[in-house]
Simulated assay, not measured.
Amino acid sequence: MFGKKGNMQQPHGYKDVAKKSPKLIIFIAIAIVLLFCVGESFYSVKEQEQAILTMFGKVLRVDTAGLYFKVPFIQDVHTIDMTTHGIGIGYTIKDGQNITVDDEGVMITSDFNFVDIDFYLEYKVSDPVAAYYNSVSPEVIMKNMALACIRNTVVNYKVDDVITTAKGQIQSEVKETLQKELTEKNIGMMVVNLSVQDAEPPTEEIVQAFKSVETAKQGKDTAVNNAKKYQSEELPKAEADADKIIQDAEAYKQARIAEAEGQVARFNEMYEQYKLQPYITKKRLFYETMEDVLPGLKVIISDGNTQQMLPLDSFSATE
């Protein structure tokens, strides 16, 4: 086992292995490299992903779901998530709780009031190449653009409208404006949906003031409803009274017309008599007028010479 110098003698088989080990190591290394190259030559793309294949920084193609081949160490693959994501604007979610972010949610309105309004933005990648190459953080850019669009829209509304009736219109305007700007900036992102989560005054004092205003509005609505109810009850009655007045006036009108027509007929008849006997008719009219003016007057006709006076009875028919 030991030589003359006291060294352990190596077995004969060990020398053979030592002679062959460099070749074996090279073979194993080559095998590993080949396996690595084969592994690097194929890549798969999931259903909700798209892959950008590049070579020396130049885009060769965009792949959808499936298994693909690439040249290892020369061509690179960048996977882009194409699913829909959501982000809160004006608040953040931590441990299942919504935490208000005042720097984002508090905005000014057209009547110079403050309102705390929260949005939920749903988005996804529309162009994977633009999303990967045109910006470093497209989500951050998109959120800042969304904040700008929200502020520019909310400032056009009064605080009462923002909190109550204008939420749908505001979110529609913001969504349209944001999508237009995303298209112009070409950062490869698109808006799926944008909705107002909540809108309220930013402080407790203002909250109480708004509650008082809301109570006053409800009182106003109640008064208006009561007035409309009174109107609906009294209007038919007033219309009926107006119709009666109109009918009475029409009846009086017809009566006066008939009376006038009768007087005209009587006058025409008298005029016909007058044309036949002017003097007698004139005297008769005179006496009849005197009877009407002085009903107690007793008229005596005399020639001025005779001593006997004859009373003149009424020309009208006797009772």
Rank of each mutant, 00 (worst) to 15 (best):
D16M: 12
V17H: 09
A18P: 00
A18F: 01
A18D: 04
P22V: 08
L24K: 06
I25G: 00
I25H: 06
I26V: 07
I26N: 13
I28V: 15
A29M: 09
I30A: 11
A31N: 03
I32Y: 05
I32L: 12
L34K: 07
L35C: 02
F36V: 10
C37Y: 11
C37A: 07
C37F: 09
V38R: 02
V38Y: 06
E40Y: 13
E40Q: 14
E40N: 12
F42K: 01
Y43G: 04
K46Q: 09
E47I: 06
Q48A: 03
E49D: 12
E49W: 08
A51C: 02
A51W: 01
I52R: 10
I52Q: 08
T54L: 08
M55W: 06
F56A: 11
V59Y: 15
V59K: 04
L60T: 06
R61N: 14
V62S: 05
D63L: 03
T64K: 15
G66S: 14
K70F: 05
F73M: 13
F73R: 05
F73A: 01
F73I: 10
F73N: 06
F73C: 11
F73Y: 09
Q75V: 11
Q75I: 06
D76Q: 10
D76R: 08
V77L: 09
H78R: 14
T79F: 15
T79L: 15
T79S: 05
T79A: 06
M82Q: 10
M82I: 03
T83W: 01
T83I: 00
T84M: 06
T84F: 00
T84D: 07
H85C: 01
G88Y: 08
G90F: 04
Y91F: 15
I93Q: 13
I93F: 07
I93E: 15
K94Q: 11
K94P: 05
D95M: 07
Q97E: 14
T100P: 02
D102K: 12
D103K: 12
E104H: 14
E104N: 04
E104L: 05
G105V: 03
G105Q: 09
M107K: 14
M107N: 15
I108V: 11
T109M: 06
S110H: 04
S110T: 12
F112N: 15
F114E: 14
V115F: 03
V115N: 04
V115H: 10
D116A: 01
F119V: 08
F119Y: 10
F119M: 10
F119I: 05
Y120M: 10
Y120N: 07
Y120Q: 03
E122L: 14
Y123S: 00
K124F: 14
K124H: 11
K124N: 13
V125Y: 13
S126C: 03
D127A: 09
A130L: 11
A130D: 09
A131F: 15
Y132E: 02
Y132M: 09
Y133C: 01
Y133H: 05
Y133T: 07
N134P: 13
N134G: 13
